[in-house]
Amino acid sequence: MPPSASNILDFEKPIAELEAEIEDIKRLTAEQGVDRSEEIAILEQHRDRLMEQIFSRLTPWDKTLLARHPRRPYTLDYVRLLFDDYTELHGDRLFTDDKAMIGGLGTFDGRQVMFVGQQKGRDLKERQFRNFGSAKPEGYRKALRLMKLAEKFGRPIIAFVDTPAADCSVGAESRGISEAIARNLMEMSALKVPIIIAILGEGGSGGALGIGVGNSVLMLEYAIYSVIPPEGCAAILWRDPAKAPEAAAALRITAEDALRLGVIDEVVPEPLGGAHRNPDLTARTLKTAILRNLDELCSMTGDELAAQRYQKFRAMGQFLTMPELAEIDAAAG
């Protein structure tokens, strides 16, 4: 998707303006044959410095906008960049094929893997086709079917997370969206093959976690992982969705926060300016990270993998224990 006014974020505008200027000069160079490469080099340096400046001061809300960037690479973009080749598999065998949840066989650095992931669409038509990346129960059931298939044949699973939320329409509710997500959480916790999660963009609540129970959880630098969209949190807390930027900060939804809270294992750095400025480089960095994790996990037995995954999630959460309080309770009997 080419940059246009509608898919450039506000804080990207100064960068885009400089780039337009550079493009103009380049075009003139080509047309008039005058060498202005020095000028271009200076402007490019200037642009990079500007970008560094802007990107070193991003707020959680800026990162939210980057995670939802209309030009951000989506799951299928990464599938194409990461895998030597891939074959999509379809359907949950119960109801239908959910276009918001894709999955299939991939050859990853010469190895056979199963991939699943939510898929968003680029233009209006495609967005509707993909239901904005919001999977329905059949999507989660399709993902589980494929993950079970992977377990059956002893293949690792790579799950790509990028969803605003699970679908909550009347249809999704009627067919048990809660049950579908709950079952995935339960079943994924016990699968006996390596599971690597890569959070690519929006890690939206239960819809994200529904394919998010892994041995290693990686997260791109400008992805977000949140219990509720900032807009929803603002609507509930302050009855004002416009306060989403404040909510984004309060909810601690950035990759850095998720790492600090022990919810993910690794932040995968993005190129300067974000993944959409250089999808190839992003995919290469991600590939290296996945490979390293995969190598480690492949040395473990099925039982060890399930146990490691269980313990990892068992340990999540923060609270105070109060032995003294327990003693008082026991005494009061």
Partner: peptide
């Protein structure tokens, strides 16, 4: 899930 504990609350679903 409890909003005030953010992503940690979400993880209780898996746990």
């Amino acid at each position: 899930a409890r909003m005030q504990e953010g992503i940690l609350s979400l993880m209780q679903m898996a746990k």
